[in-house]
Design a protein around this nucleic acid. Structure first.
Length: 489
RNA sequence: GGCCCCGUCGUCUAGUGGCCUAGGACUCUGGCUUCUCAAGUCAGCUACGAGGGUUCGAAUCCCUUCGGGGCUACCA
């Protein structure tokens, strides 16, 4: 039975930045963060960079930037420090070395001189014999003569943990009791031949030293848990002080399985550049493997911290569906205040070279944003939608041009031009009223036909923000000029 | 192959023995609204993987089976 503890909750997110963080990583980070905030505990951010071959400083920086952008603030970790630092494993090598030596001295681990080739041969044989694969314990009880011989050969040993007979059983907060027979948990390597530590050592040592109380991580680490627990035992940690484990279900790609570049495994930076809001990404990701219940789906970051519990995380994997993310993003955009929508929009407009940022442009942007706020799902749709208001070299889109080259369109445009030219007050209500009179009543046309032609002439496309508002914002001079020009198409 | 995890509409999920002729959301289809596109709104399609039990009663408990996934590294 789980013991109720009144210790302060300490949760860690400990990625190994061998690439940019993707939605799966972030979902884990989000749950870690939400759980820490929900319980009033600490959110610890640790970098697992023991794999020096694959982890790069660039990826580490990107990881920090991603969490910050998403609003997942950490209480301890890189840049902010904390009482149990350093929080980069590459800076804790002496600590791991100390424990490795201690395990060796106390008989929990031993030197293994087997070469990669020998190990591979053993695995081959095991596969062929159809028995459980894993280290065969060859170096467990080497005599001093054997050791001397290996050393003489120039072999450098790894440090290998000795898994005793028996089994390891623990209670996963999401999956219940899980048990592994040690026959299927072979002796594992703690320290490489070059003296550098492996994840298996570092993760367990750090979780203990950093006083981590809850380990919420991906399901792929479920089967490494017995190894981690063995390290706790070697460290002399009492069972009641082991962290509690909760293995989160996978986030999988659109179609079948595994996240890939094609479906979801793209960096969060990609989503940022594509115009997704942090709140939307977090809200959507929160729904992958968790739900607030009561037919609710829309949650703010604050609500997430209030509602999130591991009890409501379920055990089956979830498919990443960008369509739903998009829908949620649209909802979040619509919920933005005018000021904050403006703040989000400007970088997209400048990056797309639609505006440069002059005072007059900003004024126009502020007037234009309200008419498009409810018609977009991502911020990247803003530039193409507002381009017609700012462009210096206006031209009707080629596929729309053909729709206004017929006789009827010419009549519509000419009539519009005549009436609009006489307009003394240039505002959307006035524009609408004269155009309705001229096109709908006098020419007897259907609104969609009549206004469609004007829309193409003025905005350059058959899809645009509301026509009359668009014309008001464009101004009389440009609007008339464009209609005139369209007459010549 | 072995070990471990998982299995409700196409997708995310609600559901912890009777409230379930299974609810919500996204997608899709159709309608309304309508100056286009959206938004809004109404309706529709579609699910408890299968087979056995237990029980008055099962999506919910048990067993088997099938299917999916993970691990099986001097990666994490």
């Amino acid at each position: 039975m789980l013991k109720v503890s009144n210790k302060e909750v300490r949760v860690r997110f400990a990625p190994s930045p061998t690439g940019e963080l993707h939605v799966g990583n972030i979902r884990t980070a989000l749950f870690d963060w939400a759980y820490a905030r929900h319980t009033g505990g600490k959110f610890v951010f640790r970098i697992e960079d023991t794999d020096t071959e694959r982890v790069t400083d660039e990826y580490i920086q990107a990881a920090l930037g991603t969490l910050r952008w998403l609003g997942l603030d950490w209480d301890e970790g890189p840049e902010v420090g904390g009482p149990y630092g350093p929080y980069l494993q590459s800076q804790r090598l002496d600590i791991y070395a100390k424990y490795a030596k201690q395990f060796l001295d106390e008989g929990f681990a031993y030197h293994c001189y087997c070469s990669a080739e020998e190990l591979e041969a053993v695995r081959e044989a095991q596969r062929a014999a159809n028995v459980a694969p894993g280290y065969n314990g060859h170096c467990r009880n080497l005599t001093s003569e054997q050791i001397a011989a290996y050393v003489a050969e120039g072999r450098k040993p790894v440090v290998r943990m000795l898994m005793p007979e028996g089994s390891t059983t623990f209670t996963d907060l999401i999956r219940g009791e899980v048990s592994f027979d040690h026959n299927f948990v072979p002796d594992f390597v703690l320290v490489r031949a070059d003296g550098s530590p492996l994840y298996t050592l570092a993760v367990a040592v750090d979780d203990v030293l950093m006083k981590i109380t809850h380990v919420l991580r991906g399901e792929d680490l479920l089967s490494s848990t017995p190894r981690q627990i063995r390290v706790y035992q070697a460290m002399g940690v009492a069972p009641e002080d082991y962290p509690l484990f909760a293995h989160l279900p996978f986030v999988m790609g659109q179609d079948n399985a595994k996240l890939s570049k094609r479906n979801g495994e793209v960096s969060i930076a990609w989503y940022r550049d594509a115009g997704y809001l942090p709140e939307a990404i977090c809200n959507y990701l929160a729904l992958l493997g968790w739900s607030p219940g009561e037919d609710r789906e829309d949650v703010t970051m604050k609500e997430l911290t209030e509602l999130f519990t591991v009890e409501r995380v379920h055990s089956s994997p979830a498919r990443f569906d960008i369509k739903k993310l998009e829908a949620i993003n649209g909802d979040k955009i619509r919920a933005l205040t005018p000021n904050s929508f403006f703040d989000w929009a400007m970088p997209f407009l400048t990056r797309a070279n639609v505006v440069t940022g002059t005072a007059s442009e900003i004024e126009l942007v502020k007037k234009a944003l309200p008419i498009i706020q409810e018609r977009i799902a991502t911020l990247s749709e803003i530039p193409p939608m507002l381009k017609f208001l700012f462009t210096q070299d206006f031209a009707v889109e080629s596929d729309s041009a053909s729709k206004i080259s017929d006789e009827q369109s010419k009549k519509v445009l000419q009539a519009s031009l005549d009436r609009l030219a006489g307009l003394t007050e240039w505002n959307h209500a006035a524009i609408e009223s004269v155009l309705r009179a001229a096109l709908i009543e006098e020419l007897g046309l259907k609104p969609r036909i009549a206004f469609g032609a004007v829309r193409i002439a003025v905005t350059g496309s058959h899809i645009s923000p509301p026509l009359f508002e668009s014309m008001e914002l464009l101004g009389a001079a440009k609007s008339l000029e464009r209609i005139k020009a369209a007459l010549l198409i």
